[in-house]
Design a protein around this nucleic acid. Structure first.
Length: 801
DNA sequence: TATATAGTGTTTTTT
DNA sequence: ACACTATATA
């Protein structure tokens, strides 16, 4: 293609961005402004017009899905040679470089990649061995501190130099040990992938030179989400030729908690004073109403590069704001609306995305979709690859592939059960530590380990022999066959099949799925290998597996929705404390954190093409308790005229002074100003505000079918009683039932205050009897043994006359 | 050694 | 509400 062909279908700013091929470029791309289009055209321009070799191009994206999409579009545009371009995520790019130079930094090319789970087992182990009370220093807190340090390229030594407080000194120490442990295991965590690549480049100018020469033209997508380490990496690679094009939107920076440094984008022009800056404000995705809402909300943030999205497609529908009694009602109403629209053939399921702030909210939507037969895909939450059965199989594969990965081998040495218990595992681990060998090698030498009985050593040998056998065969066996062999030979499948529970069925399905993925990998990879498969699996995010052709509603967090778009979007749980999260509101630098939440809101709003609905619940179940909720401040921040409150909405009914006209653009006065406070006790829905019929219906029906009665075995009877008042709990120490009168009388033959005899403890006094459902827990005070809690069915207590 | 249960803490977002 | 840990018991 020639220059004219490439730029002919782009707007003026986009053309400018595409044509600025040399030198540093900062593209401030508002949501939906066609930045992927620009990036793709830019690459085409570099190759077809500037004569750059595809081999010399590096395009970094945020997710594998984005990489795939970009690769596809580049393929379509330039055809031959596109395969040579590196289009991938930071992490994938670093792994590729690190595998090649692993030996030079003390690893082998088979190094494992540890996910959060693996990191946790390493850290727990360290804390345990150091006898540190996890209540004083939690493994999670340590890992978070380490992760933040790595994002900032702070080594353990530097961390120790920088931090002198007691807790921090401890962390520095643990950090150092953690790094040693990972190295021993020939493993790296996600953060290491970046920081070790940076370290490699800084220590070995010769290697850096290699990649500088290779990557002549670099582009970075979602630049606002890069952290210090990633920025340093890019800077190292681009410093010489300075052909660096970054694309980002400071308003969409939502990963500060992961170390994203918003200054990277705000200060780009300081690092590169000669940078060309292009602003893309024309939006090709949403209606003007949606854009107005987004613009107005984000305007409440300070310190941003000002920009204002616009479109010429017209106003479109207003944004709908709907309120429901509870989270259950909210979820049901959303699912029902979708089902109805699809039923009327107005929409496909895949036109919809249901977004929420936290993964915990997903369960309700999942339940209601199931109930109403709405096909859905849940993105995130429990990642496919972090399910137990999947991790088990992967641990087998890792043990075969990376013999020194102790986390992997300890995980599966007794899975399925081989009669190797915690004591044995500790003995093997100690032996390994003393001899400076890996856990697996120690296990292979079980018969030499003092203190292990020959019977135990034999059990261990069964395991190590099995792995050794597979290791021999791993060269010629395909990954999928290897998986099959593991599942069959260990009896893993058999054990699951024997269980016969629904959960076991799910697990079997997941294992099938894993085998399918392996087959897919074998078909698609250039040169399939066990390490290659493990790497792909480690770096895949849930969102990467979303299939655009699948006709399903997508359920996901607002974070996961970044970079995507949908005709219809529901933003749910629009409540203070949920969104913005209580965490951000109560934080010590609340202003900044709420601004990040606001950006998240902006991201959510701008996902919608045609219709956007925001929903909230008056009451929400959190940590097992019902809480009254107030509308999110972000609702107030939207301009009044783009929002539809729905007919018969409470605002116009109970606040006649606000009516339908005559007040300012702010939503603040137009909607509920006070939290909905159900009267305790009577529980009827007589809050201060009237409700639309729709709200009424969904509120009640859902509450009845879901909240009270069903889950407590019909414990609550009257429809006039609040479905939300807590029914008496079975385990409560109050009388188990009104009719039985005295506690535990009848079946047990004794009651509180009675003297009872126990085979071992002798005679004691019954202090308490708790109904545990099937059995009773009896608290007995034995004069010579103290107070014991016994199960009536077990203890065989006999009343003493 | 394996299992069942009670007690405890916990939650934002993720490559 | 849920998951994880510590404890008790066969």
């Amino acid at each position: 293609m020639d220059r004219e062909q490439i730029i002919s279908k782009l707007n003026k700013e986009q053309q400018e961005a595409v044509l600025a091929s040399e030198g540093p470029v900062l593209i401030l791309a508002g949501a939906g402004s066609g930045k992927t289009r620009v990036l793709v055209h830019r690459i085409a321009y570099l190759i077809d017009v500037c004569g750059v070799a595809p081999y010399n191009i590096l395009a970094i994206t945020f997710t594998n899905k984005a990489a795939e999409e970009m690769r596809q579009r580049v393929d379509d545009m330039i055809g031959f040679g596109a395969g040579e371009i590196w289009v991938m995520t930071f992490h994938a790019c670093c792994v590729r470089i690190l595998r090649r130079h692993a030996e030079e930094i003390g690893f082998t090319r088979y190094f494992s990649i540890y996910d959060r789970d693996d990191q946790e087992s390493v850290m727990k182990d360290i804390l345990k061995r150091r006898k540190i009370d996890p209540k004083v220093i939690s493994h999670k807190a340590v890992l978070n501190a380490i992760s933040s340090a790595k994002d900032e390229l702070i080594t353990p030594e530097k961390y120790a130099r920088l931090n002198k407080e007691w807790g921090q000194v401890k962390i520095a120490d643990l950090y150092a040990e953690y790094q040693d442990k990972l190295k021993e295991n020939n493993a790296m965590d996600f953060d290491d992938l970046i920081s070790r690549t940076v370290a490699l480049f800084e220590e070995r100018p010769d290697i850096l030179e290699l990649y500088r020469r290779k990557f002549q033209y670099i582009s970075v997508d979602e630049y606002q989400d890069t952290n210090t380490a990633q920025f340093r990496l890019v800077k190292l690679l681009a410093d010489e030729h300075r052909n660096l094009c970054v694309v980002g939107d400071d308003d969409q920076s939502i990963y500060k908690f992961r170390g994203a440094n918003i200054r990277n984008i705000l200060n780009f022009e300081e690092y590169f004073p000669d940078a060309k800056v292009v602003k893309l404000e024309r939006n090709y995705r949403s209606t003007q109403n949606i854009l107005n809402a987004a613009n107005e909300v984000i305007r409440h943030n300070r310190g941003r590069k000002s920009k204002r999205l616009w479109t010429d497609v017209g106003d479109g529908e207003k944004i709908r704001f709907k309120r429901y009694e509870t989270g259950y009602a909210e979820a049901e109403a959303v699912a029902r609306e979708i089902a109805q629209a699809v039923g009327r053939r107005e929409r496909h399921y895949k036109d919809y995305a249901v977004l929420y702030r936290t993964n915990a909210q997903s369960r309700l939507f999942e339940e209601k979709c199931l109930l109403l037969n709405v096909p859905y895909k849940l993105v995130g939450g429990v990642n496919f690859y972090s399910r137990r059965e999947i991790k088990d199989v992967l641990a087998y594969l890792k043990t075969i592939d990376n013999a020194v990965d102790d986390v992997a081998s300890t995980r599966i040495i007794n899975v399925p059960k081989r009669g190797i218990g915690a004591t044995t595992i500790t003995k093997i681990a100690t032996y390994a530590a003393d001899g400076g060998i890996s856990f697996f090698d120690a296990a292979a030498a079980a018969k030499d380990i003092p203190g292990l009985s020959s019977a135990t050593a034999k059990k261990v040998a069964v395991f190590t022999d099995f792995i050794a056998g597979l290791r021999r065969k791993s060269g010629e066996l395909k990954v999928s066959d290897l998986i099959g062999e593991i599942l069959n030979e260990t009896g893993y499948l058999e054990a699951l099949q024997a269980e016969g529970t629904e959960e076991a069925e799910d697990r079997l399905d997941n294992l099938d799925e894993l085998r399918n993925k392996a087959v897919q990998y074998e078909e698609n990879a250039d040169s399939p290998s066990l390490s290659g498969f493990l790497e792909e699996v480690a770096l895949i995010a849930d969102i990467d597996t979303v299939d655009d052709n699948d006709d399903r509603v997508l359920l996901m967090t607002l974070h996961a929705a970044k970079g995507l778009e949908f005709p219809v979007v529901y933003m749910t749980g629009m409540e203070e404390g949920i969104f913005p999260s209580a965490m951000s509101i109560n934080s010590s630098d609340s202003d900044e954190e709420v601004e990040e939440e606001r950006r998240l809101c902006y991201v959510g709003i701008t996902r919608a093409r045609e219709q956007l609905t925001m929903t909230m619940a008056y009451e929400r179940m959190m940590r097992g308790e019902m809480h009254p909720m107030m509308p999110s401040r972000f609702i107030h921040e939207m301009p009044r005229e783009v929002v539809d409150l729905g007919k018969g909405s409470q605002a116009s009914r109970t606040k006649p002074d606000l009516g339908n006209a005559g007040f300012g653009r702010s939503m603040r006065e137009a909607i509920t100003a006070k939290p909905y406070a159900p009267k305790p006790g009577n529980g009827a829905f007589t809050g201060a505000y009237g409700r639309s019929d729709e709200d009424m219906n969904s509120g009640y029906s859902s509450a009845y079918s879901r909240s009270g009665a069903d889950r407590n075995g019909g414990a609550y009877s009257s429809p006039y009683k609040s479905p939300y008042s807590k029914p008496a709990q079975n385990k409560s120490s109050a009388p188990a039932s009104a009719s039985s009168g005295r506690i535990g009388s009848g079946e047990l033959g004794y009651e509180v205050g009675d003297k009872v005899r126990h085979v071992k403890f002798g005679v004691g006094t019954v202090r308490e009897i708790r109904n545990m459902g099937r059995d009773h827990q009896v608290t007995v005070d034995f004069p010579s043994w103290g107070v014991k809690k016994l199960l009536a069915g077990f203890a065989k207590l006999v009343r003493e006359e």
